[in-house]
Nucleic acid binder design. Structure first.
Length: 542
RNA sequence: GCGCCCAUAGUUCAACUGGAUAGAACGUCGGAUUCCGGUUCCGGAGGUUGGAGGUUCGAGUCCUCCUGGGCGUACCA
């Protein structure tokens, strides 16, 4: 529908040049009294043209070449909205389109030929993933799915720092637990990793090497084994959520490939770095950031900023049109430095879209479960998946706007009932599958020949919802907002359930039954496609 | 102190990048099933969008200030 309006407006703009000077839009009104789509152009122009918006609206309408078979009514309403009412026949054809395009329905080629990189999770392998990582993991993967559905070729990437202090402490922690295992009395420092998994790794090393590692460097086998073990566990957890990565990029390779040195000399050439107190500082204050920061410590070791900038530079070198970074709000202070660093070497930081999710609070029986990583007192993502299953985890993390703080209601999530929004959606899909099975026995086939018979209110509402899908996907994807899809699918499921309650397939006149069947099948396809993007299964039976 | 995020119905959240009468789910109260899956559907009650100003045709959305919460504010990542 939007496509159609865009076309006739573009044609009209050749006569009314002012139309191409503003950024007007077509929106779906909240109330259907206001039509299927509404245009705000006249109101936006009223100041510029110093004319009454309704008068402008009138002028626009008289210059539109409207096909009456497509749009049956255009009216000016309120302060100057132009409301378009599409014909029922035109809207009903969406059913035909859906059944033809099947799993491709809703995909667009708007960004065809463009490459995107989505970096997410990126947790350092120092321990199991927590529920907080879960949010980033699910949303990152869903954002990648959405981008694919609007034409991008997407690479999913996981970046981790294996050259810094955190990994050193990890090696130290494992070694100490190993020594403890050998009967040494140890004093385990508070800032070492506290979890039981450290002991498990020590045990594995002990099983394999006995007491031969007492002289081993913590950064040797201890760190290596820990990284390997923990990474495997992280990958296993993610794969339970159907999340896999195309590439794992590690910080160490930036040193091996001299990317750090290259970057340092670029900064130096541009006069953007200077020595002070034995450290190397970056002139961030000249790059739109409040103050200068250290990029190489007095010890000669870079701070995280330098490799982070170098890493992002490799993304530019790899020619992505869009780079998405997703991380938790505890990193909120770091990204402006990275973006400034990229601009400093003349890269277009607007191509980097930084998404930050807030913290997750877990609620059980109305009580907040307090978590502390340092004390290893947290719910792991694995435990959460054990408790509620992958579908619920994915749906719950997708259904909230990431910029809000989230309350994850464990009690609700565990319920396999109508209180749980996931089941409402899945039930709608399973119900349609069941109808298809039943109806097949009655030898009724779906047909798109008589869609114009679908004139009942519930049928019209459902058709309207189906018409909105393509646009919802596009808006959700371009805004990086998976929760929009959840909201839409809930509305679609509701529209279907209402249709089902009042309009029967069996027992209706043949042509009508066939048309209704087609409508139900189209709904099933859209539910399936939408759930697919969210990474939630669409069960045939429940 | 400073920076970023948040505050909408009893609760959890929407509101299409400033649009028309602020919506939905859960909860609550009251209804619907001889019939393709009742894990469903219909209806009622429930709001000064944290507060105060401002910008304009129009503000939950933008600006300023205030209140209350979260996350940061390292030569940790």
């Amino acid at each position: 529908m939007k496509k159609y309006l865009t076309e006739i407006f573009n044609k009209a703009a050749m006569k009314l040049s002012y139309l191409s000077e503003i950024d007007y839009s077509f929106d779906t009104p909240k109330s259907d009294e206001h039509g299927d789509l509404s245009c705000n152009a006249a109101m936006m122009l009223s100041k510029r043209l110093k004319k009454n918006p309704r008068q402008i609206a009138d002028e626009i309408i008289s210059n539109l070449d409207v096909d009456e078979d497509v749009i049956e009514k255009v009216e000016i309403a309120g302060p100057g909205f132009i409301n378009f009412f599409f014909s029922h026949n035109y809207k009903a054809q969406i059913v035909n389109q859906i059944l033809k395009e099947k799993s491709n329905f809703g995909r667009s080629n708007k960004h065809k030929g463009q490459k995107a990189n989505v970096e997410f999770v990126s947790a350092n392998p120092t321990g199991p993933l927590t529920v907080g990582h879960g949010w980033g993991a699910v949303v990152g993967d869903t954002v990648a799915n959405m981008l694919e559905s609007i034409g991008y070729t997407v690479e999913r990437e996981y970046y981790f720092n294996n050259a810094g202090r955190q990994m050193r402490v990890l090696g130290d922690s494992v070694k100490l637990r190993y020594l403890e295992l050998l009967g040494n009395k140890i004093d385990y420092p508070e800032d070492y990793y506290q979890g039981e998994y450290i002991k498990d790794i020590a045990v594995k090393l002990h099983d394999k090497f006995g007491d031969k590692l007492t002289e081993e460097d913590p950064e040797g086998k201890f760190k290596e084994k820990a990284e390997e073990e923990i990474f495997n566990e992280i990958k296993d957890t993610l794969s339970r959520l159907n999340i896999t990565f195309d590439s794992f990029f590690n910080e160490y390779s930036l040193y091996e490939d001299s990317k750090i040195e290259e970057l340092l000399s670029m900064f130096e050439e541009k006069g953007l770095s200077y020595k002070k107190d034995d450290a190397l500082w970056m002139k961030f204050s000249e790059l739109g950031v409040a103050e200068d920061k250290v990029i190489v410590k007095a010890t000669g070791e870079p701070t995280y900023r330098l490799p982070d900038i170098a890493y992002h530079k490799t993304k530019f070198d790899r020619n992505y049109d869009l780079m998405v970074d997703l991380f938790g709000s505890d990193h909120t202070a770091t990204y402006p430095d990275v973006l400034a660093g990229l601009r400093a070497i003349d890269l277009d930081s607007d191509k980097v879209k930084v998404l930050i999710h807030q913290f997750v609070t877990i609620l059980e029986d109305g009580e907040v479960i307090k978590m502390s990583t340092r004390k290893a007192n947290y719910i792991t993502l694995d435990q959460l998946i054990d408790d509620v299953g992958s579908d619920v985890v994915r749906y719950f993390f997708n259904m909230r706007n990431i910029s809000s703080h989230m309350n994850f209601d464990l009690t609700l999530a565990k319920k396999q009932s109508d209180e749980n929004p996931v089941f409402y959606l899945q039930y709608a899909h399973a119900r349609i599958c069941s109808i298809i099975r039943t109806v097949a026995e009655e030898k009724i086939k779906s047909s798109v020949k008589n869609l114009n018979l679908l004139l009942e209110e519930e049928e019209k509402q459902l058709i309207n919802k189906l018409n909105q899908y393509e646009d919802e996907i596009l808006v959700a994807a371009e805004n990086f907002e998976p929760h929009r899809i959840c909201t839409y699918l809930q509305e679609l499921a509701t529209a279907f359930h209402k249709f089902y309650t009042f309009r029967r397939i069996l027992g209706s006149e043949k042509k009508l039954a066939e048309a209704r069947m087609a409508l139900a099948e189209a709904t099933k396809t859209v539910l399936q496609n939408g759930l697919g993007i969210l990474g939630v299964s669409a069960p045939k039976r429940m």
